[in-house]
Simulated scan of single mutants.
Amino acid sequence: MTILVVGASGATGRLLVEQLLAQGEKVKIIVRSIDALPDVIKQNDQLMITESTLLDMTDAELQQHVQGCRAVVSCLGHNLNFNGMFGHPRRLVTGAVQRLCRAIEATAANITSTPVKFILMNTTGNQNTQAGEKVSVAQSMVVGLIRLLLPPHADNEEAAGYLQSRYGRHHKMIEWVAVRPDSLIDEGSVTHYQAYESPIRSAIFDAGKTSRINVANFMSQLVIDSGTWNKWKSKMPVLYNN
């Protein structure tokens, strides 16, 4: 079976693909340009690359890409420049999640065995209200301003909300996890980290650190390790470096 990764040319997506390939997994990726990929990835025989823009694909094309995949991982995010923050598509992540999930349902409609895993890279600034998470009034006000002024934050909230509202814990075709790292940093190797069901510190006033390579490692474990998946499915774990 195969894993589909979208957003694979991003800083975290590349690391995830590298780790999955190192585990001997077969991986498909959809990227706008292969130029951003390191040669060690592009030359791997276990990797299938499609150079395209996901939101421009037809439904039939997306269905072809998810067909036979046991997991789909979205590492998509907005570029940190003016066009990426305020240009179109403003709902890049949400649109991709919705279309990918519909493609999974279309191709798995006659399958009643193991649901497809859907893993979404999200943010600790997204409060999991369905799990009863509470934040201070001050943080709520700041996040409200961010939601109003910065479209990518609202996009991340809507993407996770779509998974929560549409796919319950016992859905036959799709199970999901939304991974919430805190402030992202770069490190050269996997280090000790911890996953929590909810934030243990304020994402606004006392943010922690999470290395991208640790996020990639956690997502790879969700893909390949059934115990990790069963612990976190239908949840929004928060990651911190130790």
Rank of each mutant, 00 (worst) to 15 (best):
T58H: 01
F218D: 11
Q19S: 05
V40K: 15
I3F: 01
S165N: 15
N128T: 08
Q194R: 14
V215T: 12
V6K: 03
V40C: 15
I224W: 00
L80K: 12
R180S: 09
H65I: 11
S74F: 12
I224D: 01
V6T: 15
N83G: 07
I111G: 02
V190C: 06
V137W: 14
V5W: 11
Q64S: 15
I29G: 08
G7F: 02
S183E: 12
P115N: 08
A60P: 00
I200W: 10
V73D: 11
Q19C: 04
E158N: 11
T58C: 04
Q67C: 13
Q194H: 11
G77D: 15
K28M: 05
V223H: 05
A36T: 07
F86W: 14
H78M: 13
R91W: 04
I224Y: 04
T107P: 07
Y193K: 04
K117R: 14
I204F: 01
G144T: 06
Q164C: 05
F86G: 00
M219P: 03
V97Q: 07
N126D: 09
G13K: 06
L15M: 15
A154W: 05
L149I: 10
V97T: 08
R91F: 09
E157C: 13
S202F: 00
A103K: 10
E158K: 09
T58Y: 03
K28D: 00
L149Q: 10
N217A: 15
K117C: 01
D56N: 13
L150R: 01
Q164E: 11
I200Q: 15
I119L: 14
D225E: 10
N110F: 09
L4P: 05
H171L: 03
N126S: 12
E25N: 02
L20G: 02
